[in-house]
Computed example of a mutant assay.
Amino acid sequence: MTVQTYRIVPAAEPDGRGAAANGAKCGRCAYRTLCLPLGLGDRDLARLESVIGCRRRLARGDVLFRAGQPFANLYALRFGHFMTCRDDHRGERYITGFQMAGDLMGMDAIGNGEHASTAIALEDSEVCEVPYARLQALMAELPQVMAHFHRMMSQEILRDQSAIRFLGILRADERMASLLLNLSARYAMRGFSPRRFQLRMSRDDMARYLGLQLETVSRLLARFRDQGLIHLERRELEILDMRRLEAIAGGMHEAVEA
């Protein structure tokens, strides 16, 4: 795993062409409805675009930031997928989340000034680097930007609470069903099929996120497939029976032994 990004594109060029010359205008981004508040005028949108420090492209396996690293920037994921992870007291890695285009990463560092987790690219990806000091100044001037940022923080808290529920309450099959449904809903929000998508993470990553053994994850996926809930070919997943999967996630089903 490397730490070098292979491309950095400034948001503003010396000739004044700015983000538009690099195709980095926020208003043209496919995920602007996730990252940006609705109803921004052209002038306010331009001010928001001026906050972006640079765009970074990372190859699969590259580290965007590490746990313990001083906090300076937030990162809006423009395309690709990431995972965030930490090490427990035994030095074992566990996964704290999977991020996709439209997500904002690094918010867990705002409180104490350093990143609590390490962010690793699951595939070739691109992020927009947003210096937090600049964003704070802009939020003081544009209340709608502050309100949207608070909504994103609230959604992050809800995701964390959901992860705690995975580990503390749900059985193994319920955890797996909940993860697949969560991915389905998030892809649907981005305009993709909620039933057919690729699992960007490995089975080992899924196990470390769900608090399960790798063998348990493999058996559950195989059982879901055998029961006609999903079709899975390598990492290409198709949900065949959404209702039954929702029933499993909600605990309203016969036990699926792992």
Rank of each mutant, 00 (worst) to 15 (best):
Q4C: 06
Y6N: 15
E13S: 10
R17Y: 03
A20L: 08
K25L: 15
K25A: 15
C26V: 05
R28P: 01
Y31M: 13
R32S: 13
T33Q: 07
P37A: 02
L40T: 02
A46T: 14
A46W: 04
A46L: 14
E49M: 05
E49A: 10
V51G: 01
R55I: 04
R57W: 09
Y75A: 01
A76E: 01
G80C: 05
G80F: 06
G106C: 09
D108M: 07
A109W: 01
A109K: 01
A109R: 03
I110T: 07
N112I: 13
L122G: 10
D124H: 12
V127D: 04
C128G: 03
V130F: 00
Y132Q: 06
L138E: 11
L142N: 08
M146K: 15
R151D: 15
R151I: 07
Q155N: 14
Q155R: 15
R159P: 00
S162K: 14
R171H: 11
L179E: 06
L179M: 10
L180V: 13
L180Q: 07
L181D: 04
G191H: 12
G191Y: 07
P194M: 01
D204Q: 14
D205N: 15
Q213V: 02
V217Q: 04
S218E: 12
L220K: 03
H231D: 13
R234D: 12
E236P: 01
L237T: 09
L240M: 13
A247H: 09
A249C: 00
G250W: 02
E254A: 09
A258Q: 05
